[in-house]
């Protein structure tokens, strides 16, 4: 019974990957892949919940100014990524560099000196970025016809951040009486693993048409877990704006 269910799942996964047209069937029968336009790049549009690890800064000694101000609910991160698939390893997949840029923002009310919420907003904006090596094992799809492409990313992370209030960028007094601006940058590492579901497998004929007209070879719906350790790599002091979370989105190879 268990084997039957497994077989059904496998059939469901493989079936959509079957070629849709007679020409393509003939092409496969002759051992030829359907004609594709050149594929060199990948573009991702992604969304993820994001909760920065600001309160993990050792200097805070367990105090939690971020959670006290903005609560513990994650905010939405919107991100774009562009990869250059510089190298294709036969029967494995593509390898190449990629860069990603995102934006998230959290807003809540400021506090009065009595500790109650005032009527003025305080905002923290974060622009997480990364440059990473990206490996996509698309041989699983191209060779085995299973429409799943596992991938991994590893690289350097970087973020710009800014704290603001209705008067502009926040400022705070240093112990010596001078003021410091509430904005800065943070270095770190970026790691991610994920899997993409090839949507072209649902309709190969339309996928080929899309390739012919726009140059988009493949379209994927993907899910990923990432670890953006933006904890101030090599920095004396940095706002820990990194997060570990899942993300999902659409990816286009072209």
């Amino acid at each position: 019974m268990k084997n039957k269910a497994l077989a059904t799942v496998l059939v469901l996964l493989v079936l959509p990957a079957a070629p849709a047209s007679a020409q393509e069937l003939n092409a496969y029968a002759r051992g030829q892949a359907p004609v594709e336009s050149p594929q060199n790049f990948a573009f991702e549009a992604r969304f993820s919940p994001y909760r920065p690890q600001i309160d993990d800064e050792p200097a805070l000694k367990g105090r939690t100014p971020y959670r006290d101000t903005f609560g513990s609910m994650p905010r939405a991160l919107v991100q774009l990524e562009l990869d250059w698939q510089a190298l294709r390893i036969p029967h494995v997949g593509t390898v190449g560099p990629g860069i990603g840029v995102g934006y998230t923002e959290m807003t809540d009310r400021s506090f009065t000196t009595g500790g109650t919420r005032g009527e003025e907003d305080t905002t923290l904006s974060i622009y997480p970025m990364y440059a990473a090596a990206v490996v996509r094992a698309d041989a699983v799809y191209k060779d085995l016809r299973i429409p799943l492409v596992p991938y991994a990313k590893a690289g350097v992370g970087y973020a710009l951040w800014k704290a603001a209030n209705p008067g502009g960028t926040s400022t705070a007094l240093r112990p010596d009486g001078s003021s410091t601006e509430g904005k800065g940058h943070t270095w770190g590492t970026h790691l991610a693993v994920g899997v993409g579901l090839a949507l072209d497998a649902l309709d190969t004929y339309s996928s080929r048409n899309l390739d012919q007209t726009t140059g988009i070879n493949h379209t994927y719906l993907f899910g990923e877990y990432y670890l953006a350790s933006l904890n101030g790599l090599g920095q004396d002091s940095a706002l820990r704006v990194g997060s570990s979370s899942w993300a999902m989105g659409l990816m286009f190879e072209f």
Partner: peptide
């Protein structure tokens, strides 16, 4: 009123000073 950054600094946080400020970055 105290905004997030003021509370963060008062709690002992060290970050801030500008995007390219060497004293703030240490990089």
């Amino acid at each position: 009123l105290d905004d997030f950054f003021e509370r963060y600094r008062r709690a002992g946080g060290q970050a801030g000073g500008g995007y390219c400020a060497l004293e703030g970055a240490g990089m």
